[in-house]
């Protein structure tokens, strides 16, 4: 019977009501047309692709509306913004301290230090905004346990927003990035020249972080207690280890790509911030959960 695999695919991609009203009529007609030969069937497959794209876009719009609309969602994003501020401060303090230590060792040129320390403000805020997604994904998934789609929609919005924010803030970002690059060169004179422009380094690393942090949020919402701690630790360890391993592997296999990973120096700091964030979240959440359970009883 034709159309079985596209039925399964469409059921995974679309909401049940969208599948029922928009996608299933197209598949039903495709199955009826199957007897008329491959040419008509091929035309119908093309039509089905358009229908599925429209359905996915319509559902995405609805999911974004669920994620960002309504008083409940606004409260949740306000909470996420507060956590982002906290994470930003942690990031900034850690990076400031680490950079000063690095400069103590380096004895770097005068003027470079100020540029790097200014750049740290930006380098601390943007990843902190991304960590807000962890909190948001956690809250979204908890609010609607069956709606993974809402979290995915919010993540897509963040992933799209990351390069846009990076592009807008380029005037502030570019001198700092160049200064950081210069500092890396002083620390590691053996590093080969960057083949990817600094702008793309920042965009790629930002998008990578957004996607993985959203996944972390989902993982947090799915598990509780020891499994939660285990999952969070595994995710962070894997995330940092994968980056370090990739950096190490790339420095051997493709030395010219190494600066991309050295450019993404905020990741270990972010991981530390995330651990602190998770512990804090659990501490705050526990009495809240207890009080909610008491109210429900």
């Amino acid at each position: 019977m034709p159309g079985l695999w596209i039925t399964r695919l469409a059921q995974r991609l679309t909401r049940p009501d969208t599948f029922d009203r928009l996608v299933s009529p197209a598949i039903a007609d495709l199955q009826c047309e199957a007897i008329h030969g491959w040419r008509r069937r091929l035309r119908h497959y093309w039509a089905f692709t358009i229908v599925l794209t429209c359905a996915a876009l319509r559902d995405f719009r609805a999911d974004v509306g669920t994620a960002f609309g309504g008083d409940d969602a606004r409260r949740m994003w306000a909470r996420a913004a507060a956590w982002a501020l906290f994470a930003g401060l942690c990031n900034w303090a850690a990076m400031y301290w680490l950079t000063l230590r690095m400069f103590d060792r380096l004895n770097g040129p005068i003027g470079l230090e100020a540029a790097v320390l200014n750049g740290i403000v930006y380098r601390s805020i943007v990843p902190a905004l991304v960590t807000a997604l962890v909190v948001a994904a956690y809250q979204l998934k908890r609010r609607e346990p069956s709606r993974l789609r809402t979290v995915v929609a919010a993540s897509v919005v963040f992933i799209i927003a990351t390069p846009i924010v990076g592009y807008i803030a380029e005037a502030l970002h570019a001198p700092a990035l160049n200064a950081l690059e210069e500092t890396y060169r002083l620390t590691r004179p053996d590093l080969p020249a960057a083949v990817v422009p600094a702008r793309w380094q920042a965009i790629l690393s930002g998008m990578l972080q957004t996607a993985s942090f959203a996944w972390l949020g989902i993982a947090l919402a799915r598990y509780r207690g020891w499994p939660l701690a285990f999952t969070a630790t595994t995710v962070i360890t894997l995330y940092v280890a994968a980056n370090l391993y990739l950096a190490e592997l790339l420095s051997r296999l493709a030395p010219s790509l190494t600066p991309i990973f050295y450019g993404n120096h905020a990741i270990p700091v972010n991981a530390l911030t995330l651990v602190a964030l998770i512990v804090a979240m659990k501490t705050v959440q526990r009495p809240f959960d207890r009080s909610m359970t008491a109210v429900a009883r």
Binding site: L22, V23, P25, A26, A28, D29, C32, E33, W46, V51
Partner: peptide
């Protein structure tokens, strides 16, 4: 009528790619 019947009856004025989306919007 169902979608495919409408396409046949329209004598080429309705396209396969848009009929289902339009019907869904009309609903």
């Amino acid at each position: 009528r169902f979608g495919l019947e409408l396409i046949d009856a329209s004598e080429g004025r309705l396209k396969r790619g848009t009929i289902y989306v339009t019907l869904s919007r009309m609903e």
